[in-house]
Design a protein around this nucleic acid. Structure first.
Length: 871
DNA sequence: TTAGGGTTAG
C-alpha cells in the first residue's frame, strides 16, 4: 500500500511538473531564455558535455559568481544548479544565491529550489533577511507553503512584499486562517506594512465571514493612516459588502477622499447583490453626475439592479448608452442585458438580444429559458432547452434548475421526470441546488413520493431542502408528515428553522387544528423575531383562526404593522368560518378604505362569510361589486358560495336556476352545495335530481352518496337508503370513515365511530350516558334520524352515542382542567345529534367547546352555537 | 468591482 501511494504521488508530480514549467515559460521569460532552455535540454547529457558547453559559451569567464549570474540572467536554471553543485562555499556570494533562488521561483522548480536551499544550509551560509526573503519566495512560488511559512518563523523578513505574496497564496489555497496567522505575526513583529498587505488580508477575513476580524482590521488600517489609500478603502468596501454590512460599506464610501471607478462599481454592485437594487441604481445616477467614466462592470451591475427592481425604463436607457459606448460585443453586456429584459417580462426584447448575439453561451440560454418559465411559456422553455443541446451547448446546473422551476410552475410532471433522468445521466444529482429544485418540482406536481426519495438520497441537505419538503407535504395535504419532518428538523439541530420553515409548517398545524403545536411554533417565532416577516405573520393568524382561536388571531392581525392583501384575506376568512359574517364585511370595507383592493381570493372569503351567516342581500351585493366595480370574472368558487348561500337559506329553486344560468359549466361542488341545501330543507325530490348530476360529475366521491343517503334516511325512506348503499357497494366504493381528534397535553387523540380503543373509554361512555339522561330529564330526545341505521330506536341511540365527535368532546371535558376551551376537529360535517348534545354539554358543564368540522366552526357556549343553524 | 439557479402565507 505504501508503495502504491509513493508511486501514485511521484507519477502525479511528474505529470504536473511539465505543466507548471510551461506556464512559467509563457508568462515570464523572453525568447532568448527559451532558446537557451531548449538548447541546453537537448545538448547537455554529461558533466563533460557541461564543461564543454561552458567553455564554448564563454571561455573568458572563470569566476563562479559571474557565470552563475549570467545563467540566471539568461534563465538557464539547469546550468546554474549544476554549476552550484560543483562550487564550494567560498566561491559563492549570497547575492548570487538570491539570483538563483529568484530563478527557481520564476521557474516554479521546487526540486532545484530545494537543492539550492540544501547548498545554503549545508555550507553554513548565514540566512539574513534578503536570503530568507528569496528562500521564502521560492517556496511560496513553488507551492510549498508550509516550508515557506517555516522560513518566516526562522528569519525576520523585512519587506512587506514577501509577506503579502505568501498571505495571498495561503488565501488562494483556501487556508484563510493561515493567511490571517501570518498577518498577525507581521503585526507582532512590527514589520512595516503596505497597502497591498491590507487588500490581501481583507479578502481572508471576508472569505471567513469574520465580520469582527474585518472590523478590527478596519480600525488598524485607520490607526496606521491607510484610511485615505484608495485601494485599501476599496478592499474594505468589498469586505463589508460581501458580508452584508451595507451600512458600514456606505460609511467607508462616504468618507473616501477619492473614489475611482472600482469604488463606485463596488458600491453599486454591493447594493444590488444585497437586495437593495434601488439604492444601487441611485448610486449609479450619482456616479453619472460626478462625471466618472462608467465601464462594463458598472453597466453589468446596473442591468442586474434594473432586473431586480423591474426598472425596465432605466434598463432601456442604459442599453442604448451601452450601445454607444461599444459594449454590445461583450458577452457579459449581452447576457445581463438579456437577463434584465427577461426578468422585467419583456420577452420580445430579450429574444431580440438573444437572436442578435453572435456567441450564445449557456448563460444566455439559461436566462432566456428562465424568462419563458416566468411568463408561463413552458413549451417555449422546454423547446429552447432541447435546442441548446442540439447546438452543442451543455446545460449546467443553472439551466437545469431553471427548467425544473418551469416544470414546477406549470405542473409538467412528465417533462420534469425526463429532466430528472437527464440529471442522473449527467452526474448533477448531487448538486444541492439541483436536488432542491427537483424536490420542488415533484412537490408542486403533487408527487410527494418522488420528492421524498430525492430528499432521502441527498448526501448534503440545507435548510432550503427541509423547507421544500416540509412545504411540499403541507401543501399536498400530508399535514402529519409535514409536522413529523419539522420535529425531526428540531431534533437533529443541524439547522435552525427560519422564517420560511415556519411559514411552511404553520399550514400543517392549521389543517390538523394542532393548536398546541401551533402555539409552540408561535413561541419560536417570537423568540426569533420572525413575526416581522409577513408570510409568517399571515400564516400564524390563519393557523389560529383555523384552530378555533379567533380572538387570538384578531389580536395578532392587529399587531401586523403593514398588512397586505393576504393578511386581510385570512382574517376575513377566519371570521367567515366562525360564522361572523358582519365582522367579515366590516373588515372587508376597512381593507378597501386602507387602499388595498380585493382580488378573487378575498372575494371568495367574503362570499363564504356571507353564506355561512345567512347574509343573502350582502352576498348578492358583493357578488355584483366584484363583477362590475372590480371587474373580476367569477370563478367556480364564487358561484359555489352564491349557490351555498341561496341553498342554506331555503332559496332552492332560485339556486337551481342560478346554476342553470351560469356562464361556465358547474362542477360537482356547485351541485353539491345545492344538495346540502336540499338536506337542510328536506326537499327529497329536488335532491334526487341534483344528486344524479353530482354522481355523474364525480362518480367516485363517496361523500355525495352518503349525503343523499342521509336525505333519504331523514325522510324515513329506508328502501331508498338501501338502494343507494347497494349502488355504492356495486361501484366498490367505501364510505370515507368519519373521525374526530382532540389534542390533550400535546398528544393527539383520534376517535372513529364506536371507538373503544382509548384507555378512558369507560369513563367516556359513562359520562355520555349521564349527559343523555340529563338531556332526557330536561325534555330533549335524541335525534335518532341521524343514526342512519334502520333498526330499533335503542340501537340507534347507542350508535349515536358512539359518534367520534361526541367521544372526543367527552374526553376533552373529562381530562382537561376547568376553564380550558375544548377544541375538537372532525374530518366530515358534524352530525345533528352531536350538535344538539354539544350545545347541552356546554351548558351542563359550563365549558366552552370549539368544534371544527369539514365546513366551518361551531362555538358552543351556554347551550348555544355560533352557527345559528347555518351549516 | 463584472452576468444566469433552488424554499414561504390567504
Amino acid at each position: 500500500m505504501a508503495m502504491l501511494v509513493t508511486n501514485l504521488s511521484s507519477s502525479s508530480f511528474c505529470f504536473s511538473h511539465p505543466h507548471r514549467f510551461q506556464a512559467q515559460k509563457e508568462i515570464g521569460s523572453d525568447v532568448r531564455a527559451r532558446q537557451n532552455v531548449i538548447f541546453n535540454r537537448a545538448s547537455l547529457r554529461t558533466v563533460s558535455d557541461f564543461a564543454d558547453s561552458i567553455s564554448t559559451f564563454d571561455r573568458s569567464v572563470t569566476d563562479a559568481n559571474t557565470r552563475l549570474r549570467r545563467f540566471c540572467e539568461s534563465g538557464n536554471l539547469e546550468n546554474a544548479v549544476k554549476l552550484l553543485r560543483v562550487s564550494g562555499k567560498w566561491d559563492i556570494d549570497p547575492r548570487t544565491l538570491c539570483s538563483v533562488l529568484q530563478l527557481c521561483a520564476d521557474s516554479k522548480s521546487l526540486k532545484d529550489g530545494k537543492e539550492v536551499d540544501s547548498f545554503i544550509r549545508g555550507n553554513g551560509f548565514v540566512i539574513d533577511s534578503n536570503l530568507g526573503s528569496k528562500l521564502a519566495l521560492m517556496y511560496t512560488n513553488c507551492g510549498d507553503l508550509k516550508e515557506a511559512s517555516r522560513i518566516f518563523d526562522q528569519v525576520r523578513i523585512e519587506k512587506a512584499l514577501f509577506w503579502n505574496i505568501l498571505m495571498n497564496e495561503l488565501a488562494k489555497s483556501g487556508d484563510f486562517s493561515g493567511s490571517i496567522g501570518l498577518f498577525k505575526k507581521m503585526m507582532s513583529l512590527g514589520v512595516e506594512m503596505d497597502s497591498y498587505t491590507f487588500s490581501c488580508i481583507s479578502k481572508s477575513f471576508s472569505s471567513l465571514r469574520s465580520v469582527n476580524g474585518g472590523e478590527q482590521l478596519h480600525g488598524y488600517i485607520l490607526k496606521l493612516g491607510f484610511g485615505d489609500c484608495n485601494s485599501v478603502a476599496n478592499s474594505l468596501l468589498a469586505f463589508y459588502l460581501k458580508n452584508q454590512r451595507v451600512e458600514s460599506a456606505r460609511k467607508v464610501f462616504e468618507e473616501m477622499t477619492e473614489r475611482d471607478v472600482i469604488s463606485w462599481n463596488s458600491m453599486i454592485n454591493g447594493y444590488v447583490s444585497n437586495g437593495l437594487a434601488e439604492n444601487g441604481l441611485s448610486v449609479f445616477v450619482q456616479m453619472l453626475c460626478s462625471g466618472i467614466d462608467v465601464d462594463l462592470a458598472t453597466i453589468v451591475s446596473v442591468f442586474a439592479g434594473c432586473a431586480d427592481s423591474r426598472l425596465i425604463s432605466l434598463g432601456r436607457a442604459v442599453h442604448s448608452f451601452g450601445l454607444k459606448a461599444c459594449f454590445s460585443r461583450e458577452d457579459r453586456f449581452c447576457n445581463t442585458l438579456l437577463d434584465m429584459y427577461s426578468k422585467c417580462g419583456d420577452l420580445d426584447s430579450a429574444k431580440a438580444v438573444f437572436t442578435e448575439m453572435s456567441d450564445r453561451s449557456v448563460v444566455s440560454y439559461t436566462s432566456m429559458i428562465a424568462g419563458y418559465a416566468r411568463e408561463g411559456l413552458a413549451g417555449e422553455a422546454v423547446k429552447l432547452f432541447k435546442e441548446m443541446e442540439e447546438e452543442g451547448i451543455s446545460p449546467d446546473v443553472y439551466t437545469v434548475t431553471a427548467v425544473l422551476n418551469c416544470c414546477a410552475r406549470n405542473r409538467l410532471l412528465d417533462e420534469g421526470k425526463r429532466v430528472h433522468e437527464w440529471i442522473m445521466k449527467s452526474d448533477m444529482g448531487f448538486d444541492i441546488f439541483v436536488s432542491n429544485a427537483l424536490m420542488d418540482m415533484y412537490a408542486k406536481c403533487g408527487s410527494m413520493r418522488e420528492a421524498e426519495l430525492v430528499f432521502s438520497e441527498m448526501p448534503v441537505k440545507d435548510i432550503i431542502s427541509w423547507n421544500t419538503i416540509i412545504g411540499g407535504y403541507s401543501k399536498n395535504c400530508y399535514a402529519n408528515e409535514a409536522l413529523s419532518l419539522f420535529n425531526l428538523l428540531l431534533e437533529e439541530r443541524r439547522f435552525n428553522p427560519d422564517e420560511r420553515t415556519v411559514a411552511c409548517v404553520l399550514p400543517a398545524c392549521a389543517s390538523l387544528a394542532a393548536f398546541d403545536k401551533g402555539r409552540e411554533i408561535h413561541g419560536y417565532i417570537m423568540r426569533n423575531g420572525y413575526f416581522s416577516d409577513r408570510h409568517v405573520a399571515n400564516s400564524l393568524v390563519d393557523m389560529y383562526a383555523k384552530c378555533g382561536a379567533l380572538l387570538l388571531a384578531r389580536l395578532l392581525f392587529d399587531d401586523i404593522a403593514s398588512k397586505d392583501l393576504v393578511s386581510w384575506t385570512v382574517m376575513i376568512a377566519g371570521y367567515g368560518m366562525h360564522g361572523f359574517g358582519k365582522e367579515a364585511i366590516t373588515l372587508f370595507n376597512q381593507k378597501r378604505q386602507a387602499g388595498i383592493e380585493p382580488d378573487e381570493i378575498s372575494f371568495v372569503s367574503l362570499l363564504y362569510a356571507c353564506s355561512h351567516s345567512g347574509l343573502v342581500d350582502e352576498g348578492w351585493r358583493f357578488f355584483n361589486i366584484m363583477r362590475h366595480e372590480c371587474k373580476i370574472e367569477p370563478t367556480l368558487e364564487h358561484y359555489a358560495c352564491i349557490v351555498d348561500m341561496l341553498a342554506r337559506t331555503g332559496n332552492l329553486s332560485k339556486a337551481y336556476r342560478f346554476i342553470q344560468n351560469m356562464p361556465i359549466p358547474p362542477d360537482a361542488t356547485i351541485w353539491g352545495a345545492l344538495l346540502c341545501g336540499c338536506r337542510i330543507h328536506h326537499d327529497v325530490k329536488l335532491a334526487e335530481r341534483v344528486a344524479e348530476k353530482v354522481f355523474e360529475l364525480e362518480p367516485e366521491n363517496t361523500g355525495y352518496y352518503v349525503l343523499m343517503a342521509n336525505i333519504y334516511a331523514e325522510a324515513d325512506k329506508w328502501e331508498e337508503v338501501k338502494r343507494l348503499r347497494k349502488r355504492i357497494g356495486q361501484r366498490g366504493l367505501r364510505k370515507n370513515p368519519g373521525c374526530s381528534w382532540i389534542e390533550i397535553k400535546g398528544k393527539v387523540n383520534i376517535f372513529v365511530a364506536g371507538d373503544s380503543s382509548n384507555p378512558e373509554t369507560e369513563q367516556i361512555e359513562a359520562f355520555l350516558r349521564s349527559v343523555r339522561a340529563r338531556m332526557r330529564e330536561e325534555g330533549y330526545s335524541p335525534l335518532t334520524k341521524y343514526a342512519l341505521i334502520d333498526a330499533e330506536e335503542m340501537e340507534k341511540e347507542e350508535a349515536l352515542c358512539g359518534h367520534s365527535e361526541k367521544l372526543a368532546m367527552a374526553l376533552g371535558i373529562l381530562s382537561s382542567g376547568h376553564g380550558k376551551i375544548i377544541r375538537v376537529t372532525k374530518n366530515l360535517r358534524v352530525c345533528g345529534d352531536c350538535h344538539e348534545m354539544a350545545k347541552f354539554m356546554s351548558k351542563l358543564t359550563r365549558r366552552e367547546i370549539v368544534l371544527r368540522d369539514s365546513n366551518r366552526f361551531h362555538h358552543f357556549k351556554d347551550g348555544h352555537c355560533t352557527c345559528r343553524g347555518f351549516w
